[in-house]
Design a protein around this nucleic acid. Sequence first.
DNA 1: ATTGCTGCAAACGATTTGCATGAGG
DNA 2: CCTCATGCAAATCGTTTGCAGCAAT
Lengths: 168, 168
Amino acid sequence: MPKKRVDDLQSVSAETALEAEKILGNRLAKLGLKQTDQRRKILQVFLQTRDHLSIDELHQQVKKLDPKIGFTTVYRTLKLFSQCGIASEVELHDGISRYEPQLNRRSHHHLVCTECGESVEFFSPEIEAVEQRIGKQFRYSTTRHSFQIFGLCTNCSKKRTSAPQVRR
Amino acid sequence: MPKKRVDDLQSVSAETALEAEKILGNRLAKLGLKQTDQRRKILQVFLQTRDHLSIDELHQQVKKLDPKIGFTTVYRTLKLFSQCGIASEVELHDGISRYEPQLNRRSHHHLVCTECGESVEFFSPEIEAVEQRIGKQFRYSTTRHSFQIFGLCTNCSKKRTSAPQVRR
DNA sequence: ATTGCTGCAAACGATTTGCATGAGG
DNA sequence: CCTCATGCAAATCGTTTGCAGCAAT
């Protein structure tokens, strides 16, 4: 039997998906909520996404799997996933709610290009420390933080210097 | 003649206001835009605010000075101020655009209570360093960052432990 | 059976826009 | 004068809600 390859994304995804479904089931049960077909399918699609999808984009994907599933359900479900710790909202300040999978995910932050919208993730352990320190200092019981850096990616910087400036 | 007191908020405000008006004039001229009566008045009111006012709240204040000034104008003007570096948007994730004066303001961040909305400002020099470092690392030319910590303030924490949990 | 879930359409609230009028350079 | 700014109302857009029928526990 071949040894499991950790870089085999397919199998890792499948495994995570099963695990997530179980976790979802548990948390739903605890809240007296129900594990429905729609929720399972949305979860499945959601976990395959690496990007920070908007509800609308996610709904598009979900419809490919099951065209019956409505927009509102996706909305409500992603909010639910957030509460269950399966999703977390990504705040790119573009006026749209975006989510990313949260389960088994190392804490990270986003560097966002304000021109083309491209974003990359980065890690910065000191941020966690700041949350702890400031929380203590002001006697807040902190639950989360939001940190993102904005700027121009290499490509857009180039365009700026050569072409006349574009106003948004 | 009495020595100028740096803790005299009134005089400091007046000074900043004049300075800001000049700066605004310069930047507007540079863009071929006009310095109007409305913009001057909105600026004046805006600089007196220490809180993170919503456009609506700001409009209320502005109307006291000049009831003719419309909501839309305040909206457009605050956006303009942001571009001119006079205001900066405060992101408290409550679905409302909030602004605070930016001029001569030490870089700071916000600790926000998710229950009552109260927020306090804090300073954290290491955040600036992170912006620099990550920018270099990914070859982004960074322009700003957004960092806020969320949690429960002391009061709301107490209420939570005594009263049954409230859902939002 | 009971209670929660879904999907549609309609409601909502913050923000933006079109346009005729007014003011600044 | 020409261009930009204003103020109003209407449009837009993301999100939320009411409700009748459906499905999970």
